[in-house]
Structures are given as C-alpha cells and as structure tokens.
C-alpha cells in the first residue's frame, strides 16, 4: 500500500494502481474519453491530465495523464487547478474542431466553458473521437478485426483495406462500446451488417427470435468449449425449458410422497 494526497486528502492505494482509478474511486469527476474497464489504459484523449508534485521536488510540477501514471508514495495530486483546466480546455478546443457536432464533446466542452472552437472546424466532421476503444475491445476479445489506420488528420478506424474484415464475427462489441455511437450496424430480420460484412443471425427454434451471429457462436463453441446445443434457443425459451423440467420433477416428487 502507498499513501498519496489527492486534492488535499490523504488516500491509500494499492501498489501498481493507476492514478485515475484512485481519483475516480474518491468520486472526483475527471473527464476521460478513452477509458474502458475491459481494456488497458491508452492515454489517447489526454483529458485525464492532472498536476503532480512531491515535497522533495523543490516546487517542480508535472502534468501527466492520470490513466497511465502509477501511484507513488507521497505524491501530491491536483485534479482541477487553473493550469490543469486550461490544458483540458485546449484539448477540448481541438476536439471541438474535429467533432463539432458530437453531443458528448459539446457537453464536455460546455462544462469547461467552451461553446465553439477557436480553430477552423474540419469541413466534413464525423462522430469518431479516435479514442480507439473499439479497436482495443476488438483486440481484447481476440478478433483484431479492425484497427486504426493512417496518421495525422487522416487517422480513422477501419477494417483492413477498407473491405469487409475477414476476422470480424459480428459481435457488435465495437459498436456497443463506442462512446459516441459512431460505429453503425444494421439488424434486419436475421441478417446483420457491420463494417460492410453480412452476417446471418442464429434464430431461436421456438420463438424465431434472432440471437447472436453464427460466426460468433462457432467461435465460442470452438474456443470456449460451449456446447453447440446451448445456442439452439434464446434466453426466454431456456428459462421456460428449465421451469418445465423443474415443474415435472416437483410434480413427480409430490406424487411419490403421497403414495
């Protein structure tokens, strides 16, 4: 255990923990757009920047991304000093230039007193904030179907060569994890389209409701040893089957007792 000071309060933290986790645990609102519990910290959005210093540093200060900075003994952290807020405002200014129409960015910028960018907004803006949560989640799940491509102003999320990704199983984790709903998909009947790839959804034998894609089920059967039988029906039908079985056992045991 180490002890450190955050906004004047002394807190204890596990060794190896990152600053942001400790700050969040204290209930302090530090913005972070590229943070997701399922993946490793990334330091992409730079908004979780905090000011750190130590008594032994002779008044020197550092500005670090708290999501990537491990806790240290006797660290003194300030999360909302004027300088830190200024830094965040500068970053949000750039975000506003890139994503002027994204509600998440607009709201966050408004919290820091910005309504419009001081730069020239890009001509055809989209909602992608380049947080890379989608690609990192895809990596964490073991598919790596999409990635960041190009650099600088041309950077974007894309499948290889902008074609239907061969490794995608259509699990929708990228779209679900996207903080701005930039990644779109379409479910029509038992067909799903994402990243321009067509998938067939498994349907419940009893109700006909679609569940997950055939490719995803095949992956789970093969790599996670889930019996194929489990994907035959949907969750509601599974519950009904269980109730039916338990009902029959109950009826049988009650009549046996009566004999």
């Amino acid at each position: 255990m180490v002890s450190l000071t955050i906004n004047g309060k002394v807190v204890r933290a596990e060794e190896g923990e990152y600053l942001l986790a400790v700050i969040r645990r204290m209930g302090i609102d530090v913005p972070a757009l590229c943070q997701h519990e399922a993946v490793e910290p990334y330091g992409g959005c730079r908004l979780c920047m905090v000011e750190i210093t130590k008594d032994s540093w002779d008044g020197w200060k550092k500005y670090v991304t708290s999501c990537l900075y491990p806790v240290e003994q006797d660290l003194i952290v300030t999360t909302h000093s004027d300088k830190v807020n200024d830094l965040r405002r500068g970053i949000l200014d750039l975000f506003l230039a890139r994503n002027p129409e994204t509600p998440l960015i607009q709201k966050l910028a408004a919290d820091y007193g910005l309504t419009r960018t001081s730069y020239e907004a890009i001509p055809e803006p989209n909602d992608c904030i380049l947080c890379s949560i989608c690609t990192r989640v895809c990596d964490a799940m073991g598919f790596s179907a999409i990635s960041m491509v190009n650099r600088g102003h041309g950077k974007e999320v894309a499948p290889p060569l902008h074609q239907a990704p061969p490794d995608c199983v259509g699990c929708l984790a990228c779209a679900q994890a996207c903080p701005t709903n930039y990644i779109t998909y379409e479910d029509v009947g038992n067909r799903r389209t994402i990243w321009n790839k067509q998938f067939e959804l498994l349907v419940c034998d009893k109700t006909g409701r679609p569940t997950i894609t055939k490719e995803f089920a095949d992956y789970l059967i093969k790599n996670r040893e889930i019996p194929e039988d489990y994907f035959r029906i949907d969750d509601a039908s599974h519950r009904e089957e269980l109730a039916d079985k338990m009902g029959r056992i109950t009826r049988w045991s009650v009549t046996e007792e009566a004999k």
Partner: peptide, 22 residues
C-alpha cells in the same frame, strides 16, 4: 458481472443454458 467491463457482445446471453443472463 462487472458492468464497467462488459462490452455487451451478448455471448453470455446466448450461451447460458438456463437463460439467466439477460
């Protein structure tokens, strides 16, 4: 189930043989 970690891929919903992940 850790809601912060969950990416809502629905794998558990489909895989649970008793339909109790929903």
């Amino acid at each position: 189930l850790d809601h912060e970690k969950c990416v809502r891929c629905m794998a558990c919903v489909a895989a649970c043989p008793f339909g109790c992940s929903l």
